[in-house]
Amino acid sequence: MIAHATPVKTYCLIFGGLLLLTGLTVAASLAPLGGLHTLVALAIASAKAALVLLYFMHLADSSRLTWVVALSGLLWLAILIILTMSDYLTREWWRVTDG
């Protein structure tokens, strides 16, 4: 029944992956990526967060309800940021220049 306790090896592998990604994100920030820095940094951070969530927090073998809770937190955060930015990013579009 110990099957449910994740092997230590898995934890160490995940940890190694996290360290690797940390190195990668620092390296990427110093590399010439043009306008892609933020995108790359956020992608790497999301990957790291996913590793922690899935394995350290055992989301991978949690109930669907737990998934729903975790995802709704993220979804609501997205609503907050996206709808707020929908105002800021489009404010300049409306210009009455037919004078």
Partner: peptide, 13 residues
């Protein structure tokens, strides 16, 4: 960490 420490490339991004 990336949002605070790793944005020193100018404002292009």
């Amino acid at each position: 960490f990336p949002l605070l420490y790793l944005i020193h490339h100018g404002g292009a991004a």
